[in-house]
Design a binder for these strands. Sequence first.
DNA 1: GGAGCGATGACACGCCGTGTCGTCACCGAG
DNA 2: CTCGGTGACGACACGGCGTGTCATCGCTCC
Lengths: 188, 188
Amino acid sequence: MGRWTPDARGRLQQAALELFTEQGFAATTVPQITGRAGLTTRTFFRHFADKREVFFEGDAVPQLARRLLQQAPADVEPLTLLRHGLRQVGTERFDGQREQVRRRRQVILAEPALRERDAQKRDELVDVIRPGLIARGVDPLAAALLAQVTVVVLHVALEQWLAQPVEQAFGDVSDGCFERLSSTLAPA
Amino acid sequence: MGRWTPDARGRLQQAALELFTEQGFAATTVPQITGRAGLTTRTFFRHFADKREVFFEGDAVPQLARRLLQQAPADVEPLTLLRHGLRQVGTERFDGQREQVRRRRQVILAEPALRERDAQKRDELVDVIRPGLIARGVDPLAAALLAQVTVVVLHVALEQWLAQPVEQAFGDVSDGCFERLSSTLAPA
DNA sequence: GGAGCGATGACACGCCGTGTCGTCACCGAG
DNA sequence: CTCGGTGACGACACGGCGTGTCATCGCTCC
């Protein structure tokens, strides 16, 4: 409990999210955000590297991926581990929150600057998964391909999952994507 | 032949590339670029949407992808088409220019802002390939997965190709990546 | 109770990107 | 040949982003 009202970072995130949905990302300025949060502009940039980061901060997927890769038993097949990992991500961050995820997705898609940052975040996830696989004994080329493909499936499956008429478990959608991809790549 | 010395856009690209390699992307300002090109700052932004675009402009890969997808005979298997497409990209843009490609790659990797834009460019390529596949009769889910995977292979194969001790044909590396991916994803 | 610490405020500043208007060679119509 | 349109660029102003720097002051530890 400091000299100031607590959770400055959380207040900034909250204010930013509200303003982004109210008036769009491009139309809201950092002073507007800090004004609503009761802070100064300079303080915003002490918590977030730039205006886009406040939207993506707290995205726990890379942390979860790191944890799963480290803690899984060594005898688990990499592909199995990755499939279960996506299912885990689904239950922790998607299942049961489809409308919330959809709204967030729409904000991103509407703003080129946020799409770009989203693509970078996917790359960062690849850069977590790949060394994790290598540490588990996967050779570098396969690790690079598997890490990239896992993030691709996460991305495509999320799109599929959001488009379903009725919500199903994300893990089922991502597993379906894995299988579909495997069969599509198999030589005819 | 106008009132001004011709090829303003080309002069800007040239000056920008020189300055980026001389002193780095972040350290060069747009006024520096336009100064060297003999133009004003405002003119820079008439030719390029932002400072990063001058580095990626003229990247003909999406155009090539569009052309290949439209012109290939309708009976070519999608996967075959994509593999040949990557080989084509390799011969047109990579093979025989490895040092040049490597230098460009290093500039991108050294600058987070350029990595981010590079990721966005890969997404844009996906957004060219996917509808092209759908137009060829591939169903939407497979098209999404194949488009993403093709760009992944392009990316991973480029990394592989740059790391080889002696240069080989890019198409051989990308084909190897495709096969490796297919076998890695196949159920044990 | 005094020293160090850490989060924030306050202020200045450079650069990015845009809106707007003026200038002037080129081009086509008459 | 002239005259208005067009299109690229210059000139200027400006808001917003992101950073460097120093001051402030409650908290903690000794």
